[in-house]
């Protein structure tokens, strides 16, 4: 981890002193994360791709201002969030909710299940299942969606997310909790229904034998 950071700092210094092409290598590990960050705000793959490209260009243009007190990935996340949010504000189609009005207490009761059979990742080959999960995430309130994707998709730490968003770690935790519970409530009934419970099938066989 520290080694990767040292490597990045070295590359950045070299890029700044003229080895521009190294920028391709510098950002390669973050291409996916930058796209996901943009998606978390814009909810549209085409728009997110444009925003991701623009964010990378801005990172290049501002590389001299990167001081290394935050991780490069966190710095990049902040630039991407700013880029995506400014696009969102400009697009007349989408109404931006006030950043605070989603942080009020609501009821976050989970969907009650008596037992849960693990749904294996292979089932995501079914397009419909993957789409259903994406739609549920897209349907989260914006501030919850951002935190959720940064944490559970990009696997940033709570502290990194707090730094990138400029909010307190506790607020990140609260939003994350709510996002996860909302998704559980929405997806658990669907996933349970979509995938027949094999356990029941086996116990039925067992009962017959």
């Amino acid at each position: 981890m520290a080694q990767a950071l040292a490597q990045e700092m070295e590359w950045i210094a070299r890029i700044l002193s003229g080895e521009r092409d190294l920028f391709h290598e510098l950002i390669r590990p973050y291409e996916r994360a930058v796209f996901l960050t943009a998606v978390s705000v814009l909810r549209d793959a085409t728009e997110a791709e444009d925003a991701a490209q623009e964010a990378m260009i801005k990172a290049y243009r501002g590389l001299g201002s990167f001081r290394g007190d935050a991780k490069f990935s966190t710095w990049l996340t902040t630039i991407t969030l700013n880029e995506a949010r400014s696009r969102l504000r400009k697009s007349a189609k989408v109404k931006v909710k006030s950043l605070d009005n989603t942080d009020q207490a609501e009821d976050y009761t989970p969907f009650l299940v008596a037992d849960w059979r693990e749904i294996p990742s292979e089932t995501l080959e079914r397009e419909e299942l993957a789409k259903q999960i994406e739609r549920a995430i897209e349907g989260l309130p914006p501030t919850y969606r951002e935190v959720f994707l940064l944490r559970d998709k990009e696997e940033m730490s709570i502290e990194e997310i707090a730094e990138a968003l400029g909010v307190k770690a506790n607020l990140v935790k609260v939003r994350l909790f709510r996002a996860r519970m909302m998704l559980q409530k929405q997806l658990a009934p669907y996933l349970k229904r979509e995938l027949p419970q094999r356990r029941r099938w086996f116990s039925w066989l067992g009962g017959r034998a």
């Binding site: 996916r32 989970p110 299940v113 693990e118 080959e125 999960i133 994406e134 996860r180 559980q184 997806l187």
Partner: peptide, 22 residues
Amino acid sequence: AILDSVHNILVLTADDRIFRLP
């Protein structure tokens, strides 16, 4: 079961097949 379902949903979300790159 609730804990398992939340955990399972997070595992599925993290999969590369969710929000594939264009």
